[in-house]
Computed example of a mutant assay.
Amino acid sequence: MTSNLIGRITKIIDPGDALGEVLFGLIMALTWTVGSRLVFAKEGLDVHDLIVATIGCNVAWGIIDAVLFYLGATFYKSRRLRLFRQIKAARTESAALKLLAKEFPIEEAPFSAKGADGDALYRSLLTLACRADPVKASLPKGDLFAAIAVFALVSATSIPAVIPFLLIDSAHLALRISNLFLILLLFVTGYAWAKFSGGRPFYAGMTMTCLGLLLVAIAIALGG
């Protein structure tokens, strides 16, 4: 069931983007729960306020992230249309090839390509662009579904943070378990990231955990 859910999500949104949103949501939730632990010893802990604040913060940022994702998709498609028009308007083949090389630099790709192969690639793209006709840059339903997925992923990461408070009477114990659960999920996120990218899962999990905790510490120190 879990594999089917992950498969559906990765069909809607890029796995890297999905895991990035999960990481962001976990950091947001941890910022609230760890920050509340620091306040706990001084002023006591209002469990109801913590639950509302954690869920509310992640839902709010889920909405913001979804809107920004949708705007980013719009910008990306408009930029591609602008590039297409620039290629059509280029006075020489050399100028058009330079536009393509600037937009799609193979030097940044994780492989070593020969100069002749790169030139052949850009000439193929140029041929395709010259034969094609411009169309209106519209956003398909897939982009809308992806934005909804972004909102759901960021919002859902608040659920593991609040479940211990709903099941355990001791606020102090629930807070400890909530923090440990979120830290474990940081590791799982890094582990899954390596699975998709071909890295070393355990190393990636530990790196993601340390990085997430560092970002949480920075956010708390800066008043976040």
Rank of each mutant, 00 (worst) to 15 (best):
R123T: 02
A60H: 03
S3H: 07
D49H: 14
A101F: 00
G199M: 04
A129Q: 02
I6E: 07
F187T: 00
F24I: 04
L144W: 10
E43C: 00
S36W: 07
A217S: 15
A137H: 06
K98I: 09
Y191H: 15
I9H: 05
F202V: 08
R80V: 05
Y76E: 15
A156Y: 08
F145V: 05
L173F: 12
T157W: 09
T127W: 07
T207C: 10
L38S: 10
N58F: 08
D119S: 11
F24Q: 01
D14K: 04
L83E: 11
G142P: 03
V67P: 05
V135H: 11
A146V: 02
R91G: 08
T54E: 13
Q86V: 00
W61Q: 01
I177A: 09
I12F: 07
D117R: 00
T92E: 06
V188G: 06
L97V: 08
R80E: 10
I27W: 03
A113H: 02
L213D: 04
T33I: 14
D133R: 12
D46R: 03
S197C: 10
L167I: 15
L144D: 09
G16E: 11
L81I: 06
L128V: 09
F187S: 06
H172P: 02
G142S: 15
A53R: 06
Y203N: 07
K42C: 02
